[in-house]
């Protein structure tokens, strides 16, 4: 068994919906059947083998090579297996994912990990807006699993997030954790304005203090919290720098908010 490899063979003029190419939907199919899989692109459908050169046969280990930001919905709803993306990914990568590993070597577009329920997403580059968020109009964003971004993340990370962890090793944009109802978002770098806007519950763990604390977050003092080493040690099984912080973050400044909303969220800033 060798990994099933999709190598992008044409220059895309339209965006392509790659959601049919997951370990779940390809399981048990021959390479001919896989090649005949119809992919939505623009206002029409094209066979997968018109867009990709397809090799290999292990549908639980899939690689997308020469990937570009025009490939949307990569790994949507997958429940198991590994999906490796060599290059960038478009929007909605890992949307509603329920298990398995999605690894993206480049950047991801907007709404990556949106409404994700379980599994692991690893982004080597940067992430677009609404990482781990809810789709517009929906009430629950990410509901489980872990997302690791080695680069930076744009605005609205964890918008309406419900559970799980998002670990950003670079910087994060504005409205980090906005409207969060639970879960953990941690950022090693700097964060933008309006952090925790309308946050109800959940934890924002920051290694660098934001330029300004929102007026609707109240200072609860500096503390040694017993759960933090446990939480950070829990990240040691993943490929992230956060696991190494278990012994180094001793104390945190705790802010509770958003007091204009439920006010049971917290912003923990390492001191």
């Amino acid at each position: 068994m060798t990994a099933l490899i999709f190598t992008l063979a044409t220059e895309l003029r339209q965006r392509v919906d790659l959601s049919p190419l997951t370990p779940d939907s390809l399981a048990g199919k021959s390479i001919e059947e896989i090649g005949a899989t119809l992919l939505q692109t623009g206002n029409r459908q094209r066979r997968a083998d018109e867009i990709f050169v397809i090799e290999g046969n292990d549908t639980s280990h899939i690689k997308v090579q020469n990937s570009t930001a025009k490939l949307d919905y990569i790994g949507k709803g997958m429940t198991h297996g590994d999906l490796y993306v060599a290059g960038d990914a478009g929007s909605y990568a890992g949307m509603s994912m329920k298990g398995g590993n999605l690894r993206i070597l480049g950047d991801v577009g907007a709404y990556a990990a949106c409404e994700m329920k379980n599994g692991q997403i690893h982004v080597q580059g940067d992430a677009g807006d609404f990482l781990g968020a809810a789709l517009p109009g929906n009430k629950k964003g990410m509901q489980g699993g872990i997302v690791i971004v080695k680069g930076n993340a744009a605005d609205r990370v964890g918008d309406r997030m419900r559970r799980g962890a998002i670990l950003i090793e670079g910087d994060a944009g504005c409205y980090l954790g906005a409207r969060m109802t639970a879960g953990t978002v941690a950022v090693l770098g700097s964060v933008g304005e309006h952090i925790g806007y309308a946050m109800q519950r959940g934890t924002l763990l920051l290694l660098q203090a934001p330029s300004s604390i929102p007026v609707t977050f109240n200072d609860c003092g500096t503390h040694t919290l017993g759960f933090l080493p446990l939480l950070l040690r829990g990240f040691q099984e993943f490929e992230t720098r956060f696991g190494a912080l278990a012994g180094s973050i001793k104390r945190v400044q705790r802010y509770a908010g958003d007091m204009a909303n439920l006010g049971k969220g917290e912003m923990l800033i390492a001191v």
């Binding site: 489980g144 559970r163 799980g164 639970a182 953990t184 519950r201 934890t203 503390h223 040694t224 919290l225 017993g226 759960f227 446990l230 939480l231 829990g234 099984e237 049971k264 917290e266």
Partner: peptide, 25 residues
């Protein structure tokens, strides 16, 4: 009393209960 916080870590659920010396985990 409503100030407790749940955390799920590696598939296990924990509770952080605020008490006078800090938190009961």
């Amino acid at each position: 009393d409503g100030f407790q916080i749940s955390k799920r870590i590696n598939g296990k659920r924990y509770w952080r209960v605020p008490v006078m010396d800090g938190e009961f985990l």
